[in-house]
Amino acid sequence: MSAIVTTDLAKHYDDVRALDGVSVTLAEHRIHGLLGRNGAGKTTLMQLLTGQVFATAGEMRVLGQSPVENAEVLSQTAFIQESQRYPDTFRAVDVLRIAAGAYPHWDQAYADTLVAQFQLPERRMIKKLSRGQFSAIGIVIGLASRAPITFFDEPYLGLDAVARRMFYDRLLADFSEHPRTVVLSTHHIDEVANLLEHVVILDQGRVLLDADTDELHDAAITVSGRAADVDAFLAGREALDRTRLGGLATATLTTRDGDERAAREAGLDVAPVSLQELFVHLTTASATAPATAGADPATDVATV
């Protein structure tokens, strides 16, 4: 079953098209990655799906219903946003107490464990917390709410590598025990790549790529070798990225069947392209290419 379906969803602010014709389907009980550069529309999409803002056009279904002003859906939805604002006088313990009442599946014992693990000073005013401690509040709520749909929007700004790893471990362990739909938006793509089962990349308010991570592994390769050999291999094909150093060259391209073998036979080295690299190449290509041509590499990948 699909947890989330959007059809031509759009959100315009005055003259800014924050989201423009987004149609995605996110399956239930999976961890989805929502990636994109700053301003790509990730937060807007999550705000729409949680009824924080209203759509300009299009349709959306969360757990089969419209989420707008829908308590039945919204009580099943946790949205942990990087920019969440809290009342000036609040302490973490205040927020957690309200969250405990608002989410039907809340697990207080688990919340207490997380508070201890992330060393969150519960009784200090939130406005006096460090950025990392601030993020920990969201992580505790996002995990302990056990909401059937949980959105994490840059959940760990200010957290160090140890705490981030702890978040991944907790997320995986809890996800295994209590399967639910997780949408994770982050800039730390390399760190989360192995956690994700499905990825949506947004760029300038539109879907640039929508694919399972398994498929993405073969979606692009980087070939390197003598410049003449690389040129001959490409034979006029569009590359996502090309660099040249003297007589040597590398090129990253979206693959078609048999590319890898052909490249090896042409005497080129072939290397896989990580999700992070693919993301950079795709978003760079779309930013630099003219509007019409820019869509090509994306559609190539999206149809693998």
Partner: peptide
């Protein structure tokens, strides 16, 4: 905060 916690 109310909206953020899923209240309508």
């Amino acid at each position: 905060l109310a909206l953020g916690l899923g209240l309508t």
